[in-house]
Amino acid sequence: MTKKYPGTYLKRDEMYSLPGLVRYKPTAKYSFSAGIAQTKFLEGLKKGKIIGVKCPSCGRVYVPPRAFCEYCHVPMNEYVELPGTGEIHTAVISYISTFRQRMDKPEIVGVVKLDAPGYTKESYEFAGLFHRFCGITEEDVISGKAIGMRVKPRWKPENERTGSVTDIECFEPVES
C-alpha cells in the first residue's frame, strides 16, 4: 500500500469471511446471432473490405450495416463497399484499464469519420467506426493535431483474419 488512507484496513481473508458475503460466479454464456446485415460486414472484414449499407429513403450510410434504417424504419439492402479511409473525428488516450489498473502503455482510441458516398467533409452526420489508433502519439492527441488526421485501416494478414472487428488491428495515418 503506497498511501495511508483513514479508516480500518481489512485483509483480503477478513473481508471474505464477513457473514452474508457470498461469492458467486455466474455462468452466463451466449452465442449472438450476427444476423443478415452484420454477417455481410464480418464477411467483408475477412476479405479486407469495409462494407456499409445505404438507406433507400434518407440516404444515410450505416457502418457496420444494419438490416433496417433506424430513422425511416425501412429495410436496407443496398450494400456499399467503402474505401476504408477517413479522418479522425475524436481520439482519447486511455491510461487505465477496465479493471482500474494503470496500463503499461496507454492506448489511443476514438472514432474514424469514414469516406462514404453521399457525405461531405462538412456533413454533420457521418458513417463512422470506433477503433484503436496506431502510429499517432499521445502528443498528437493532447495537442489536437490528431483530430482531422487522414487514416486508413491496418489489416491483419489475410490468414489471421476471422471475420471480426479485430481483423482491423487499428487505424493508422495515411502516408503522405
Binding site: F32, G35, I36, A37, R66, A67
Partner: peptide, 27 residues
C-alpha cells in the same frame, strides 16, 4: 431457432408486420 436473424432483425420483422396491419408509420 432462428439463426439467420439477429434479435434486432427479428423484432424489426415483427414490427413491420404490425405497423403494416395497422396502416401506420411508426416514425
Amino acid at each position: 431457432s432462428v439463426p439467420e436473424l439477429s434479435f434486432r432483425e427479428l423484432v424489426f420483422e415483427a414490427a413491420r408486420r404490425a405497423y403494416a396491419e395497422a396502416g401506420i408509420d411508426p416514425r
